[in-house]
Design a protein around this nucleic acid. Structure first.
Lengths: 175, 175
DNA sequence: CGAACTTGCGTCATCGATGTTGCAGGTTCT
DNA sequence: AGAACCTGCAACATCGATGACGCAAGTTCG
């Protein structure tokens, strides 16, 4: 069950068009067994999305983004989310689920993330002259990029990521 | 011919698993006509990659990345590449072509990009304590993210992108 | 031991995408 | 007008993925 989901993530992250046969093989079971657990390919992907979304929400919960100082919460959330995203990159990229409960959890996480960025700007952690939406997009892009490194310490990755997000890579003399 | 390539880009960027039928429809021709031009689906995608790669190389050429000051070249290259990437995002993401000539052009662009970043670091535009490889990955990620905006002035987008890349979005007091 | 459950294997039906071909109608150039 | 060319349309064959069975063998409990 979990083994099939994990195998599916492993295979589909490398090749999104992989067949059920390949997924089954990676899970060490017969293809029919996969079909017994998940009525269709779509059902399997939905289950992956549901599982990843729950992990995602738990990662955000653990960071207490609404009660800790913005910068601390940002570090914590980043490290936690990276840990999940490294293992469930494919499932998280297809988070647009039909299941209303999954959609609710997902939009809830989205909301908390935006709220965190707003608080960060109010606290002076984010520059006042940058668009919060753009800042969030940059943050997401960096998380996605960082999660490509499958090896390495998530905490160190989070440190580098947040450092890059806030300070950039320039030497500072501007143009 | 060009119309088919452009239609394929339009359709495949929204849905990479789209059928030849959908591509043909978007191009306003019959499916058989597409098959007459491109022997197989793979041939079509290869042609798209070849076309996009050439556009990519021309965009870099026009920026004169090896003879202008690094910062100027960075702005120019960014704006030029964004213009191409907005219209050929799908084709550029699958730049791993079998055609040796395409592969050569692509690796040549890659080389020039790395050289530009090295020069930027030597000139003090990039911080000396950041890994050049990481900086390049961040830059690519930002280009990819920025290219999602289909409307808007590429020059303004490049300005914001380079500003974010070099200065980040933080207010500067650090942790 | 015996019942309930799960799994692997082989088989089968179906379906959609791909790629090919022949034919008829339309355009362009000479 | 005639030749060469391109296109749309319809039909066809093929192929791989999907999903559904039944059956035999294995396990886990009582």
């Amino acid at each position: 069950m979990r083994a099939i989901l994990e195998a599916a993530e492993r295979v589909l992250s490398r090749n999104p068009a992989a067949t059920m046969e390949q997924i089954a093989e990676a899970a060490g079971v017969a293809r029919t067994t996969v079909h017994r657990r998940f009525a269709s390919r779509e059902a399997l992907v939905d289950a992956m999305a549901a599982w990843a979304t729950r992990q995602f929400a738990e990662a955000m919960d653990a960071a207490h983004t609404d009660s800790t100082p913005p910068l601390v919460a940002l570090y914590q959330a980043t490290a936690n989310v990276l840990r999940v995203k490294i293992d469930w990159g494919f499932a998280m990229s297809r988070a647009l689920s039909d299941d209303p409960e999954v959609a609710r959890v997902h939009s809830d996480v989205e909301r908390r993330c935006e709220e965190l960025f707003r608080r960060a700007q109010d606290a002076g952690v984010l520059r006042a002259d940058v668009d919060v939406v753009w800042a969030k997009r940059v943050y997401y892009a960096l998380c996605h990029e960082a999660a490509q490194d499958r090896e390495g310490d998530p905490d160190a990755m989070a440190t580098r990521l947040v450092d890059t997000l806030l300070r950039g890579v320039g030497a500072g003399q501007g143009l």
